Deep mutational scan, measured.
Amino acid sequence: GTVHVGDKTYHFPTPDAAKKFAQEIAKKLNLQVTVKNGTWQVH
Rank of each mutant, 00 (worst) to 15 (best):
F21A: 04
V42P: 03
P13W: 06
F12N: 00
K27I: 11
Y10F: 11
A18C: 02
T9R: 07
V35D: 09
D16A: 13
A17C: 04
H4M: 15
I25V: 11
G1I: 07
K19I: 07
A18W: 02
P13R: 11
D7Q: 11
G1R: 10
N37R: 04
P15H: 13
K28N: 07
Q32R: 11
T2Y: 09
K36A: 13
A18E: 00
F21S: 01
H43P: 04
A22R: 00
I25Y: 07
N37T: 04
T39M: 14
L31D: 02
N37P: 03
A17T: 06
K28T: 08
I25F: 06
V33P: 04
L31A: 15
P13E: 13
D16W: 07
D7Y: 11
A17H: 08
I25G: 00
N37I: 03
F12E: 00
K28E: 12
W40L: 06
A26W: 02
V42R: 01
P15S: 12
V33N: 01
V5Y: 11
G1Q: 10
V3C: 02
W40D: 02
V42H: 02
V5M: 09
W40H: 04
F21V: 03
T14D: 10
F12G: 00
H43M: 13
T39Y: 10
N30A: 06
D16H: 10
Y10T: 01
K19W: 11
P15G: 10
K19P: 00
Y10V: 03
D16Q: 13
A22D: 00
V35L: 15
Q32A: 12
T34K: 06
T2M: 09
I25T: 08
W40Y: 14
Q23E: 15
A26L: 02
N30D: 08
L29Y: 15
A17Y: 05
N37Q: 07
D7M: 11
T9Y: 10
K36D: 13
V5D: 03
W40P: 02
Q23F: 15
A22Y: 01
Q41C: 06
N37K: 05
Q41E: 15
D16M: 10
D16I: 09
V42T: 04
G6C: 03
K27M: 11
Q32L: 11
V3I: 02
H43C: 06
T9P: 04
T14A: 05
V3Q: 00
V5S: 03
G1L: 11
V42Y: 02
V5E: 01
V35N: 14
G38C: 05
Q41Y: 15
F21I: 02
Q23K: 08
T39E: 15
V35H: 15
A17V: 06
K8V: 11
P13Y: 07
K8E: 08
L31I: 05
V42I: 09
H43Q: 12
F12T: 01
V42A: 03
K19Y: 12
T9F: 11
Q32I: 14
Y10E: 00
T2W: 11
Q23T: 13
I25C: 07
L31F: 07
W40F: 14
V42F: 04
F21R: 01
K36N: 14
T34E: 07
T14Q: 05
T34F: 08
G1F: 15
P15V: 11
N30W: 04
E24P: 00
E24V: 08
H11F: 13
Y10C: 04
K8P: 00
H11P: 03
V3D: 00
L29K: 04
T34Y: 09
N30S: 07
D7I: 09
N37M: 04
G38A: 06
T14G: 05
Q32D: 08
I25W: 06
